[in-house]
Design a protein around this nucleic acid. Sequence first.
DNA 1: TTTATTGGTTTCATTTTGAAACCATGTTTG
DNA 2: CAAACATGGTTTCAAAATGAAACCAATAAA
Lengths: 147, 147
Amino acid sequence: MKRTSFEGADCPVARSLDSIGDWWSLLIVRDVLAGKRRFGELQKGLGMARNILAARLRKLVERGILEQVPASDGSAFSEYVPTERGRKLFPVLVALRQWGLDHYFRRGEPYRELVDRKKGKPLARIEVRAADGRALQPEDTVFVTPA
Amino acid sequence: MKRTSFEGADCPVARSLDSIGDWWSLLIVRDVLAGKRRFGELQKGLGMARNILAARLRKLVERGILEQVPASDGSAFSEYVPTERGRKLFPVLVALRQWGLDHYFRRGEPYRELVDRKKGKPLARIEVRAADGRALQPEDTVFVTPA
DNA sequence: TTTATTGGTTTCATTTTGAAACCATGTTTG
DNA sequence: CAAACATGGTTTCAAAATGAAACCAATAAA
């Protein structure tokens, strides 16, 4: 009767969700990728219960998405930093951001835009493409069993 | 003490998660985008409790991600089909799939690959890019308040 | 006409969540 | 140095979500 786990699922999407498919994890990763590092900073920013944050951080560390390291400011506290695996979630976050902005913000509604630091311009749209660059819709794809 | 809602969050990622940020919703959307339509088909495929599936479908319809329509086969049953909004989740799913495959499948472990239907070749990698096409890492981006 | 299937809802036990209190360090201030 | 405060949690407990199974009404098949 436990909450079903997708850890051994044969679908990569399901396995991903097993690590980050709950209500808070992606928001934590979002904040860490945006530079937040400390427990309290995350807790205040997200407005979430401390015990839940502690549990999520533990799991994210366990799954190799974050790493807990001694604080960079010399203090005896520790910090949570993204691993390479965590950084690779960036496209997922940007895709979710673009989708949410398109579908759940009214035009004119204020929001903070994520831009290319160098040029200050909005990011390109995230798209699914074929190897040759053609944009693909769901129907343009099929599953196959690799050789 | 209610489960916190991200519906009115100022962050687009959070609003997205309010619609699809639970354990099952994205898997349901994945299956519907892959062509599954009927309640029982989804339930059996996902192996999830019927009441939870019913609740999720209700919410996905409410949020405009799926639509409940009379069955196409002439029977009196109904079907769940993706809306345009639901179809637009495709990049999110593909990004999650690529990430999960990269990080939670051992090499050689069997999986089904999603390929370009026309050429039968694997999809291009999903990447975050600037307007001019440069690939961007998290540190290459900043938040700004649009004018 | 009986039987089976489909698409749910209801019920109930188990888990998870969230708020608040608590606590052990570590850090700053007087 | 001592007292006060901040930090990073853990514990406790009530409310809410989840999951398994039983149930049920409407179809569809035999």
